[in-house]
Amino acid sequence: MKLSNKQKQFLKGLAHPLKPVVQLGANGLTEGVVAEIDNALNHHELIKVKVPTDDREEKALIMDAIVRETNSVKLQVIGHTLIIYRQSEDCKIQLPR
């Protein structure tokens, strides 16, 4: 799914007050974590995921894997927090044109 810059800015604004829905633990990115992120995307469409690791390369690899595995769109990374969006069948969030 391709989003315009206007749509990305709109979604970032909606994501600002949100708390992280999923936080990776000591085991890192497991199938269970990916399934939980997938469920959260189906339910909310727009979520934050916290990736608490100090290694920048490892954090980038984990975030890219999350986006790839869930077929979502990476909107923004702030520190250890990843903001992703995937439209559900219900279309809960109405995007601007």
Rank of each mutant, 00 (worst) to 15 (best):
V73Y: 15
M1D: 13
S72Q: 01
K74F: 02
K74Y: 03
H16C: 00
G25D: 06
N71V: 01
D90S: 08
E45G: 07
R68A: 15
Y85N: 03
V33D: 01
N5K: 13
Q76M: 10
E89M: 06
T53D: 07
V67F: 06
D38L: 08
L41K: 04
A60Y: 12
I78S: 08
Q87E: 15
V73C: 08
N27S: 14
V33A: 10
F10C: 02
G32N: 12
N71E: 12
S72L: 00
L11P: 01
K92Y: 13
T81F: 15
Q23A: 12
G79F: 14
L14G: 05
E31P: 01
T53A: 10
E45C: 06
N71G: 11
N71P: 02
N5A: 09
K92V: 06
P20G: 07
D64F: 10
K92L: 13
G28P: 06
D38P: 01
E89Q: 08
S4Q: 05
Y85E: 00
T53Y: 13
E69K: 15
I84K: 03
G32R: 11
T53I: 14
L11V: 04
G79Y: 15
N27I: 00
V21G: 00
L11W: 04
R86A: 10
I66Q: 04
L75K: 11
A65I: 00
V67S: 07
K50P: 00
F10I: 02
L11Q: 04
V73N: 08
K50Q: 13
T53V: 15
E58V: 09
H44C: 04
Q7W: 03
D64Y: 11
E31Q: 11
H43A: 13
L82S: 03
T81C: 12
L14Q: 10
R97K: 06
S4F: 06
I37Y: 02
K8C: 11
I84T: 06
K2D: 11
T70Q: 05
R86L: 09
P17H: 05
N71R: 10
L61Y: 11
V49A: 04
L14P: 04
K19R: 10
P96Q: 08
I62M: 10
L46F: 08
M63E: 09
K59T: 05
N42F: 04
E45Q: 13
V51T: 13
T81N: 12
N42C: 04
T70S: 05
D64V: 02
V51Q: 09
E57Q: 14
I83P: 01
T30F: 12
K48D: 00
T30Y: 12
A15M: 05
L46K: 05
R56A: 13
L82Q: 04
H80Q: 12
L61F: 12
L46A: 06
N42D: 10
R68D: 14
N39K: 14
K59M: 13
E89S: 08
C91Q: 14
D64M: 12
V73G: 03
P52F: 09
L24T: 03
E45M: 08
H43N: 14
V34W: 12
D54N: 14
I47C: 07
L11E: 01
E31R: 12
